[in-house]
Amino acid sequence: MKAVWKNKIIAESDETRIVENNHYFPMSAVKQEFLVNSDTHTRCPWKGKASYFHIKVGAEKNEDAAWFYPSPSKAAKPIENYVAFWKGVLITE
């Protein structure tokens, strides 16, 4: 699976995990040069507290377009430190 934005591959892995129709990529499969830390956090009732990244390609920035669970609930442990994408990031095989 690949996560693509602005014709750049942001992440690529054969080891994604699907939760609620989202592909979560291992953090090691994400190209860190495209990620910018965000101060945004949300809470999922069953997964716990999510943290976000902006995606930056050249001068273009996609705010809070990636999220992950650094310390998920017990039920969501399989996606601990896996990253999912939205806001126009194309997920493709």
Rank of each mutant, 00 (worst) to 15 (best):
P72D: 11
V83W: 06
M27N: 12
F25I: 04
A76L: 07
S28E: 13
W46V: 02
F34H: 08
K47S: 05
D64V: 05
S38L: 05
T92M: 00
K6T: 08
T16E: 14
C44D: 10
A65Y: 04
E60M: 06
A66C: 04
E80C: 00
N62G: 15
R43F: 11
K6F: 11
T16Y: 07
S51C: 10
K8W: 02
H23Q: 15
I9C: 11
I55F: 05
M27I: 10
I55Y: 04
I18R: 13
A59H: 15
K56L: 07
M27P: 05
M1P: 13
K47F: 01
A66E: 02
A65G: 15
N62Y: 10
L90T: 13
H54K: 04
F85R: 05
K31G: 10
N37I: 03
K31C: 08
F53N: 12
R43W: 05
K56A: 09
D64G: 13
A29Y: 03
T92Q: 08
F53H: 14
F34T: 05
V30C: 07
I79E: 11
W46M: 05
D39A: 12
G88F: 01
V36T: 06
E33C: 02
E60A: 11
F34N: 08
F53L: 12
K74N: 09
K6G: 09
P45Q: 08
I18E: 15
